[in-house]
Amino acid sequence: MTTRIGVVTFPGSLDDADALRAVRIAGGEPVTLWHRDTDLHQVDAVVLPGGFSYGDYLRCGAIARFSPVMGTVIEQARAGMPVLGICNGFQVLCESHLLPGALTRNDHLHFVCRDQRLTVENADTAWTRDYSAGQEITVPLKNGEGGYVADERTLDELEAEGRVVVRYLDGNPNGSRRDIAGITNAAGNVVGLMPHPEHAVETLTGPTTEGLPFFTSVLKQLVNA
């Protein structure tokens, strides 16, 4: 039996097709989920892709957070289902309060689009077990509102509990506090990050294939569960 990984399409999602493709290349069964679905079609994990859901009106991710599909995703995430939020998906997870903090306008106000070096600091989450702690990877980064902010106490907590999953290397691209590129919840099943591992899963189109372990990690985790 193959593992079913759902990818949500919101109006304005851009990277849902690449996320589905990454799931397939990793060996999972990609399942498309629509923002109006309240039923998750028996998926074992969910990816919230990048893009501009609902035009990013109000705040990035703010309207998507209240879409019908998110009601079920939030409930299942709290029950332990692995959920990965990439870029706009990370913003949705923060707006949903599944992850602490928020993403704000890049400090230099420019949209950034580049291949970004990162350190994987936490290789114990559902989405990062196929990395080793301290491993350096390069995947694309593209955002206008990617500056991670949270109050000092929350930042200290994230650091102390090892919940910073990936950190920017070679310069902070957007003013994120403490160079944070991605974080996890306390249980390690919900991970959000601004960079795009789904764009780095094969050499034809990606700068590297160093994003693929996000997707193989969750498959292994689910098979062993």
């Binding site: 704000t104 306008r105 400090d107 109050d151």
Partner: peptide, 14 residues
């Protein structure tokens, strides 16, 4: 309004 401690790069640009 953004909280006082949150950087407001748009306001700064203005």
């Amino acid at each position: 309004m953004l909280k006082p401690e949150i950087l407001d790069p748009q306001g700064q640009a203005v």
